Amino acid sequence: MLETRPTHNASNRHSPQSQEQDSHDSGVLNGRAPVITQTGQDVSRAFSDGAQQALDSATRHGCRQALLKANISSCSNRQIHSSHFDQQLQPGSGVTAALLQRHGISVCDENEMDGLLLTKPQP
């Protein structure tokens, strides 16, 4: 488990621009959309750096599957919080989930653990 930055809490949201331009995750990864805290701080770099650290660790250890936390701005593979800080969820992937998937690592959350345990990784 890699946990190095306090960027994964519910106070962070992908900006509305990311929702319109790029499916949330890719906008942040491509530098076209920020992740903003409720106080207006841009934490995009921390999200991207944390995602890269997770990818580097997964690659170094030969991981082909990842179990990440659901409904979290960085980790979720299905839903993230809306940009309105209203506790509403919307379809989308977090930055780390998206980067891992981009590199061929299968991502699931704690609600999908059975599938992860039953899935044989591809060589």
Rank of each mutant, 00 (worst) to 15 (best):
S26R: 11
L89R: 03
A58D: 08
A54F: 05
R45Y: 02
G40A: 12
A54S: 12
S26H: 04
K69A: 15
H84Y: 11
T4Q: 10
S76I: 05
A33R: 00
N9V: 04
N71H: 15
L2I: 12
Q87H: 11
S11R: 14
V95W: 01
G31E: 01
C75K: 04
S44V: 06
I72T: 15
Q65C: 01
Q19T: 08
I36A: 06
M113D: 02
E20H: 07
Q19N: 09
L117F: 04
N9C: 10
L117V: 03
R5A: 10
S106I: 11
P6W: 01
V107N: 00
E110I: 06
D25W: 11
Q38V: 10
H103W: 03
Q17H: 05
S23F: 08
L99C: 02
A70N: 13
K69G: 14
H84C: 12
Q122E: 13
S76C: 11
Q41A: 15
R5V: 08
Q21C: 09
V43E: 00
H103I: 07
S23R: 08
G94V: 10
G92V: 05
H8E: 06
S48Q: 08
S48C: 13
L118A: 13
R13A: 11
M113C: 04
L55T: 09
C108A: 12
N71R: 13
V35L: 09
G50S: 12
P121C: 03
R60V: 05
S57L: 15
K120V: 15
N111C: 08
M1E: 13
R13T: 01
Q90N: 07
Q87I: 00
S106P: 01
Q21A: 07
S106Y: 10
Q17V: 15
S76G: 14
C75H: 09
D86R: 03
T37F: 02
G50E: 09
S23L: 09
Q87Y: 09
S18R: 03
D56H: 04
D22Q: 07
D114I: 01
P6Y: 06
P34I: 07
H61L: 14
E3K: 03
N111H: 06
N30G: 13
E20T: 10
K120N: 12
G50I: 03
H81K: 13
M1Q: 13
M113E: 12
D42F: 04
L118I: 00
Q41C: 10
A58S: 13
G62N: 02
I72G: 14
D49L: 07
R102M: 05
R60Y: 10
G115H: 02
N12V: 13
G40Q: 08
Q79H: 14
P121W: 01
V35F: 07
H8Q: 10
S83Y: 11
H61T: 14
A97C: 06
L68N: 10
M1Y: 14
D22A: 08
G27Q: 02
Q41T: 15
Q122W: 05
T59Q: 13
T96L: 06
G115N: 09
G92L: 00
E110S: 02
G50L: 06
H24Q: 07
H81C: 09
N12Q: 14
L29H: 02
Q122K: 12
F85A: 15
G94Q: 06
R64I: 05
N111P: 01
G50N: 08
A97I: 14
L68D: 02
Q87A: 07
I80V: 15
S23M: 13
D86C: 01
L100R: 00
K120H: 10
D86F: 00
N30C: 08
F47K: 05
L68M: 15
T59L: 02
R13M: 07
I72H: 15
L100F: 06
